[in-house]
Design a protein around this nucleic acid. Structure first.
Lengths: 332, 332
DNA sequence: CCATTCTATGCAACCGCTTGCATAAACGGC
DNA sequence: GCCGTTTATGCAAGCGGTTGCATAGAATGG
């Protein structure tokens, strides 16, 4: 077994409390004693037991990210990789550990998240991909668990970091309207996610605002490349094919582009395409994808920072909106 | 504060030990008592404190994945996303939690990993991207920490799951040789990684085996798209430009292709390209990328499974090699 | 019917660290 | 030189579980 605080105490000829105070950088401890104890710690290669510490202090310095999809699917989308990058980076800066929780079904998700927090494995949660009917949010609120949302809740005022997805969709759609497109279709992600509802809403508003009486055309699919292909195929089988697509995600857009190329359509001449996220690959596609850069990394970084702030200073929960930007490239 | 085992005990009119035994599914407890206790647990919404439990049992049911790059870079490459997918899935199956540790510099990496294990936050580690001079492996070995490697160690016999990277590179290179290419260059990832050394080795062997006396041409870059572009630019500035590229990673290959298209080279007519990994995007690139499918997901899944097996049965450490497959698409 | 074994449960020590309170020594003021 | 502060450290009771050992009562056997 590894050395305990008692071993250190014995070696340094002090009491365990003193060692504990040295660890905590308590000012009451004299410099000589502290030095003596530190010496003993390195000599014994001592590392404090985090469990014992958490048990006594009621804090773990660990947060968890919950991803509300099955492990099988979650990371197929680069969005999560980017998000994680941002979160990990903030954790590193603040000396927090990061746990991951993924689950496919909603019950399991709630159970797992609650267990981690109530079981005192983590101090708080970051929730990604918020559903419209969010049981988890309600459960966490009921249990007074500190958490921050990536996205926004339809019903509750909670800490969150989000994009203005309605506005994003307006920007993207308006861009196509301005390019003179006549049949602008929207390919949405799953409609049980708030982000999907918001983007659909923005799309609709932009069309209505256009004063050109453009038809609304919304289809739903999953946030995958395959989903994009399939949705595009459905749209293409319509009486009149769209001449522009707003895809709710870059990977969907990738699928769309792939389908279009395979079937001999020119982009953007025949069909213009616009995506969401500005995934790292999007600049490198052929043709390079016009997209809404939502700063996924910042979303992740800020959510972790906010959560840790809440945990440490009990500072009030914020509502942060990360600005997005339309990146015009070759597909429009 | 949430309910403790004592609260449950009081409510159920038994001792804490009995409750503990019910939690552990101890057979000695009578069915009635167990039912009574379970009733009390749900009534109190009881969740055992994982810290107290770990402290007493010396086990956490948590493992960590260490990623030996800075948080900033690690997830730019879809390889890690796929890997994580596999690991998370195995953890879910076996009811383990997953922690993440990322670090840019080697000292920090060792410190962080050791701290997690010696601090009893996790029971074992999965190490990704093994360096040639692996301090971490040696440190872990010295401390008798359970771990499994993704990749292989040059110096130590340890639990690992790997591809036969030498063979992969041979397959890929031979494929180009057979297509009659004359100047086959290899773009490697950082040479301090074992995987890089192995792939270079395979490339060399394949060329030598070709009996056509083909020149060896190796350049090094990072595992990024930008790295691929830059490396290709370097190769193109040579007296004689290569007519085939083996890229040690699909994202590198993507950068190569991008550079080639921009500069008006036809693929594969002028230059053939082959990658490694079969990232999800690779099938969808234009032209679709020929690549070695190394089953990244399986790599992750198996490594977690193996680690948990070791942890639970003290079963001997295995050495697993995941087969790879050459996927021929349009770039060769 | 009593001794013996078995079954189900309780007691209490322990896992390793933190922290409120107590205290001895050092200090300062008069 | 005495007393009230201040300073540095120790004591011991937690934090919330687990588990070896003891034991009361039930079951078994002769």
């Amino acid at each position: 077994m590894s050395a305990t605080i008692r071993d250190v105490a014995t070696l340094a000829n002090v009491s365990p409390s003193t060692v504990s105070r040295v660890i905590a950088n308590n000012q009451a401890i004299s410099l000589e004693t502290a030095a003596k104890v530190r010496g003993a710690m390195v000599r014994l290669n001592y590392v404090p037991n985090a469990n014992a510490r958490s048990l006594a202090k009621h804090r773990t310095k660990t947060i968890a990210l919950t991803i509300a999809r099955s492990a099988e699917e979650a990371f197929a989308n680069p969005f999560f990789a980017e998000l994680l990058r941002g979160i990990a980076s903030a954790c590193q800066q603040r000396d927090y550990k990061l746990m991951l929780s993924m689950s496919s079904n909603s019950d399991w998700e709630v159970k797992d998240a609650l267990q981690m927090v109530k079981g005192k494995q983590v101090d708080g949660l970051i929730l990604s991909s918020v559903r419209a009917d969010d049981f988890l949010v309600e459960a966490l609120l009921a249990e007074q668990v500190p958490f921050v949302l990536i996205g926004r809740s339809l019903k509750h005022h909670v800490a969150m970091v989000n994009n203005d997805n309605i506005d994003c969709a307006i920007q993207g759609t308006r861009h196509l309207v301005e390019r003179g497109r006549q049949r602008i279709a929207f390919i949405s992600g799953p409609r049980d996610l708030v982000v999907s509802l918001d983007r659909i809403e923005g799309y609709r508003r932009a069309l209505r605002a256009s004063s050109r009486n453009l038809p609304e055309l919304v289809v739903e699919t999953s946030f995958t490349t395959a989903g994009g292909r399939e949705a595009m195929a459905r749209l293409a089988s319509l009486a009149e094919m769209p001449d522009a697509i707003v895809a709710a995600d870059d990977v969907i857009a990738l699928g769309v582009i792939h389908w279009l190329k395979e079937h001999g359509f020119a982009i953007p001449a025949d069909v213009a395409v616009i995506g969401f996220n500005d995934d790292p690959m999007s600049a490198f596609m052929q043709p390079a994808l016009t997209t809404l850069r939502i700063s996924t990394y910042a979303l992740g970084f800020e959510s972790a920072r906010m959560l840790i702030d809440m945990l440490e200073n009990q500072s009030p929960s914020e509502q942060l909106v990360i600005p997005a930007e339309l990146i015009v490239r070759q597909t429009t």
